[in-house]
Structures are given as structure tokens and as C-alpha cells.
Simulated assay, not measured.
Amino acid sequence: MNTTESASHYDNLEQWSTHDLLTSINHEDKSVPLAVEKALPQIEQLVEATVERLKAGGRLFYIGAGTSGRLGILDASECPPTFGVPHGLVVGLIAGGDTAIRKAVENAEDDFHQAWRDLSEYDVNAQDIVVGIAASGRTPYVIGGLQQARQQGLATGCIVCNAGSAVAAEAEFPVEVVTGPEFLTGSTRLKAGTAQKLVLNMLTTATMIRLGRVKGNKMVDMQLSNAKLVDRGERMLMDELLIGQEDAALLLRKHGSVRAALEAHKG
């Protein structure tokens, strides 16, 4: 059953006070982490499959439409600065192309064949893994992309918010986080979108840790692209090496990353 499209438990919302609206949205949001918790075994399988492919030289691709597609692009775009990986290691694709990141592209998600065409521009191969993101679990763009990817020998996963969906049926490693009816009927940017973001956080964070991109609990490979991150890098070195800020700043400027500075200092 497509519970994400089911009627809200609340009605006559236009008559509510701001306080009551916010309290009820917050109440619904509290159920999301519990729904994610139930899917942890599935998430674990997807992480293990992703780690295996990336260790073998493969890449992680997200395909989605609307909010789901934007969440995939967001997660992919944050991997290079956070973990120092190449921009092409995690790639987010959205139905309708880059235009759809900011503005909805009419009927783009209904093209069953477009996702594979989009993936093919990256010369995808059997070392790669494709994860479809679709709150409803019935988006043709995602279904078609996963189906073709699987036929071509790629590993496939998905993140959906309904049980027994067509998207999940096409994925070897499905993640089903059943979030139920939205506060605003059918507005899956709410609980479903939050659930997808939580799962994406888990997927890439756990994967990058498993790939050795974290030391202790520190992002030692992060890109030093602004003053805040340089300051964070200096503090990492100060804590790890028990040195002062000036020495940490010198090491960081000389070696260009926290990891390189640590290895050079301890070597």
C-alpha cells in the first residue's frame, strides 16, 4: 500500500494556530528515526555492497526525481569536501537534469528510459552501484534506471518509503523506511524526505569510514576550503599531536591536509 499518499491524520489545517501546526509537524517527525531503525538491517546490507564496489574501483550513483533526486545530489556533493574523495566517486542524477535541481521539470520523472541514458554518460560498468531514491517507490525514472542497471550487471539499491514497491523489486539491496501518511497529505518532502536524508547520511558516512577516510572520529581528509575548516584542521592537529596553534597552522600549510600533516609528523 502506498502509505505516503494516504490521507493525513490531521484536517482543517488552515484553521490551526502556528503553535499547533508546528507541534503536530514535530510530533510526526519524531516517528522518522524509529522507522529508520527498523530498516537498519537493510541499510547495513546496502553499505556493505557499496563498500565492496568502491574498494574494487567502482562508483556510487544516485538516481531520483524531485525532492528525492535533490537529496541524492546533496549527499553526493558533500562527499568530496567532507572526505576528500574525487568528485566522480559519488554522483547524484536527477530526472530533468541540472535544471530540475532548482525548478521542477514537467513529466521528467515519467520517462522510464532516461535514467539509463543519464547513467550511460558516465560509462557505468559492473564495478559501480546505483541507488534509486523514491519516496513513493513507483517513479518510472528510477524503476527503469535500476532495471537496466541490473541487466547490465551493476549492483543496485534503493531508498523508498513504502513497503513492497516497484522500485524495491528492481533493487538487490532495497531499503524500505515506511514513514506512513504525511502531516500534509502526500507532501513527501516532509517525513519521507527526512527519512531519506537520514539513510543517505548513514550510507556515505559508514561507507567512507569503512574505506579509511576517517581517523578516530576526525575528518582527516576534508578539504580545507574555508577559514572554518582550516581552523577545524588546526584543532585536530593540536589535539592529536599536543602542539600549539602556530605549529599546527605551519604543519597544515606545509602538507595541505590533516592526514598528510599527521603522517609527516609521526613519520
Rank of each mutant, 00 (worst) to 15 (best):
M1K: 12
T4G: 07
A7H: 05
H9W: 10
H9V: 07
D11G: 11
L13P: 14
E14M: 11
E14V: 13
Q15E: 10
W16Y: 10
W16A: 09
H19L: 13
S24E: 15
H27Q: 12
K30M: 08
V32E: 04
P33F: 14
P33L: 15
L34T: 15
L34K: 11
L34G: 11
L34E: 07
V36L: 13
E37H: 08
Q42S: 05
E44Q: 10
Q45L: 02
V47T: 05
A49F: 14
A49L: 08
T50N: 03
T50A: 06
E52D: 15
A56H: 13
A56V: 12
R59Q: 07
L60G: 02
F61S: 00
Y62W: 13
A65V: 10
A65K: 03
G66S: 07
T67D: 14
T67Y: 11
S68I: 10
R70V: 08
L71I: 15
G72N: 03
G72V: 09
L74C: 06
D75W: 04
E78D: 09
E78T: 08
C79R: 07
P81D: 08
V85Y: 15
L89A: 09
I101Q: 13
R102P: 01
A104W: 13
D111G: 06
H113V: 15
W116R: 04
D118S: 12
D118H: 08
L119Y: 08
N125M: 02
A126F: 09
A126H: 12
I129Y: 01
V130M: 04
I133D: 06
R138V: 00
P140A: 02
L146R: 04
Q151D: 07
Q152W: 04
L154V: 03
L154I: 03
A155P: 01
T156L: 02
C161P: 07
N162S: 03
A163T: 03
A163W: 00
A166E: 08
A166L: 05
A166F: 02
A168F: 00
E170R: 05
E170V: 04
E172K: 01
E176Y: 02
V178P: 01
V178H: 01
G180D: 05
G186P: 08
G193H: 10
T194N: 13
A195G: 04
M202I: 14
A206G: 10
A206M: 07
T207P: 01
G212E: 13
V214R: 05
K215S: 11
K215Y: 14
G216V: 08
N217M: 14
K218M: 11
K218S: 14
M222N: 09
M222C: 15
S225D: 12
N226I: 10
N226F: 12
A227L: 14
K228T: 00
L229K: 11
L229H: 10
L229C: 06
G233S: 11
G233F: 10
E234G: 02
E234I: 09
M236H: 12
M238T: 05
M238Y: 12
D239Y: 12
E240W: 09
L242W: 00
I243Q: 00
G244M: 07
Q245G: 09
Q245K: 14
E246V: 00
E246C: 02
D247I: 00
A249D: 04
L252C: 13
K254P: 00
G256V: 06
V258K: 03
V258W: 01
V258Q: 04
E263I: 06
